[in-house]
């Protein structure tokens, strides 16, 4: 499958992945990483105005990114949970970048394992939410954690070869 895929125009992510699968991966990540009994509830709440994002890029037959987005206080609360056993006295912005980045990394690695091989994972990045490309190359989970909005997207890269070349599902 991978040999074919790499020579073809990029298939949209929704051909290999659906929101339920992403949610299931996130459930495991939350239980193990955020804390036992911590859950991401798949019920959307209104998105906050100011958000932070962390993501990892996936390069291979499919190119894109796995992005985690929430507001700053939620990012701090997540960081506190991740560092539960050894929290520093003050959570610095770098700690939040690092923790959200690691969440994106672990989600990304698990997403990558569902994609055609060979795919590789980039190092985590953080910043303003990166733009997605075409809407059909997007898998999105709008959820809440402790009542606050948290979104996970698996989104095709804007520069990916599909954008202008082909809209036909493979």
């Amino acid at each position: 499958m991978s040999e074919h895929a790499s020579s073809l125009v990029q298939q949209p992510i929704t051909d290999v992945l659906d929101a339920t699968t992403v949610q299931r991966i996130a459930d495991d990540v939350w239980t193990a990483l955020v804390g036992d009994g911590e859950v991401l509830v798949p019920l959307p709440v209104p998105a906050p105005e100011q958000t932070v994002s962390a993501w990892v890029q996936i390069t291979g037959p499919w190119c894109g990114a796995v992005v985690v987005t929430c507001d700053q206080p939620t990012g701090v609360a997540l960081t506190e949970c991740l560092l539960r056993a050894r929290p520093p006295a003050v959570i610095e912005p770098e700690d939040v970048d690092d923790a959200l980045g690691e969440l994106a990394n672990v989600l990304g690695g698990n997403v990558k394992s569902l994609l055609p091989e060979p795919s590789s994972l980039g190092l985590p990045q953080t910043g303003p939410t990166p733009p997605a490309s075409r809407p059909e190359d997007l898998c999105r989970v709008d959820a809440q954690w402790r009542g606050q909005s948290l979104t996970i997207t698996v989104q095709g890269a804007t520069g990916a070869p599909h954008a202008e070349r082909n809209e036909v599902p493979q």
Binding site: A85, R86, D95, D98, G101, E102, N105, P124
Partner: peptide
Amino acid sequence: DSRAMRRIVGSI
């Protein structure tokens, strides 16, 4: 490379 992960693994 993640400090958070180093702390998590280390503290376990």
